[in-house]
Design a protein around this nucleic acid. Structure first.
Lengths: 153, 153
DNA sequence: GTAAGTGCAAATGATTTGCAGATGT
DNA sequence: ACATCTGCAAATCATTTGCACTTAC
């Protein structure tokens, strides 16, 4: 979805390590969708174009790209880790009712960071973390159900 | 560390399900230390007293106690999930330098919850989540190192 | 040419599951 | 008595590792 970004990522990759099929394909896959993808998703994606790429290589490449600062990952609740390009801080609101993953407004988390620094000297470094809860739709649904239950006895 | 709490937990357990050796031992272990324990830690602990209790039973019991609302768990970064008694909201600040797990002041997270509700209608339900960063000590150390590096050329 | 990267298969760590038998209420 | 729990072993899911071979630079 962003050819220019992909090119600059490849440039950064070349500056910090070797450009290989697996790494190029991973960056391409990650820059073509702004979803949060699991290693398995990415493996499928890469293998569609290059069937020879092994799952282990996916994991090793993801680790390498992470060390180079090109990508990042988060642990959303139980399942596998999700990866995405390192494009500045953003945080995940995970709806436990419908599974939606919402990008949270940055400002709210800036306040959190400032609050923690003031309160206990803790410096937040993770630029990605997940908060579980209910999205607006599911929250309203739950509220409606409660009301119905109350009137129904 | 809190016999009264343990008794009330067992009472709550009896009200919602069966009181078994594994469940009792788990609650006892969890109420005797306020650490965050992995399932494996707890298994060791329980098996010290009751060697016959199987690992699978630990997981099933933890799941059951969670459904009853008596305990909760969080995923701290990579490793296994950590469990603790459900004693009101508290959040984890994990220092990625020294591994310390700090209990965060509740107020900061109340602000976060309110902010998310106002900004996008998201209702935070998880009463436990982890934020990665650097504790005061490690943050100061890192700052000092930066300063030293600058003067050192 | 050479170190870095890869394929493969097998190991690991955490957690889950099917089923037959034991146990709490 | 009867559903609920448990023990066991094996399955599963996500990820890692050792080693010989290949490739990017």
């Amino acid at each position: 979805m962003n050819e220019a970004r992909l090119l600059s990522l490849l440039e950064a990759l070349r500056a910090k390590g070797r450009v290989t099929t697996a790494r190029r394909a991973l960056l391409e896959s990650l820059s073509h969708s702004d979803r949060h993808r699991t290693a398995e998703d990415l493996a499928d994606d890469v293998r569609a174009a290059f069937p020879a790429v092994h799952r282990a290589t996916i994991y090793r490449s993801l680790e390498a790209l992470t060390e180079m600062g090109l990508i990042e990952h988060t642990h959303l609740g139980h399942g596998p880790a999700v990866y995405h390009l390192a494009e500045g801080a953003h945080h995940h609101l995970v709806c436990e009712a419908c599974g939606a993953v919402i990008e949270a407004p940055a400002t709210v988390f800036e306040d959190l960071s400032r609050g923690l620094r003031l309160a206990c000297g803790f410096e937040v470094t993770s630029r990605h973390f997940a908060v579980m809860g209910r999205c607006r739709t599911c929250a309203e649904l739950a509220a409606a159900r409660l009301t119905a239950g109350r009137s129904g006895g």
